[in-house]
């Protein structure tokens, strides 16, 4: 299963659409890779979705999703909201 490419604008509307897709993919087993490289704008709804996805445990206890290649816009939004650590972006930055 390939990565789920997140849209440039991750607003409330997009978050609702992706949430449904994520549930579907998570239900098929294994963590979903979220390609966040294309995010240009993200709001509170988008950040909440990412937090849910990253911390929703699968049956084996692993996370339902993991972020891949976070864009600068996502990192900035996370920093602004104080969620860098919660989204694992500090680890990402160190890497």
């Amino acid at each position: 299963m390939g990565p789920l490419v997140l849209p440039p604008v991750l607003d409330r509307f997009a978050a609702g659409m992706i949430a449904a897709d994520l549930q579907h993919r998570a239900g098929r087993g294994g963590p979903v890779v979220l390609d966040a490289s294309g995010i240009e704008r993200i709001g509170m709804a988008g950040l909440q979705l990412l937090l849910c996805a990253l911390h929703a445990p699968l049956v084996d206890g692993s996370a339902a999703a993991r972020l891949d290649r976070p864009s600068a816009a996502l990192c900035e939004a996370a920093r602004l909201a104080g969620l860098t650590t919660h989204l694992g972006l500090d680890t990402e930055e160190r890497r």
């Binding site: 998570a26 509170m44 339902a64």
Partner: peptide, 17 residues
Amino acid sequence: VSRLPTLDQFEADAAWL
């Protein structure tokens, strides 16, 4: 972030933070 729901209960219109 304690009020965040599980993925299957996620609502894009809600605020949990």
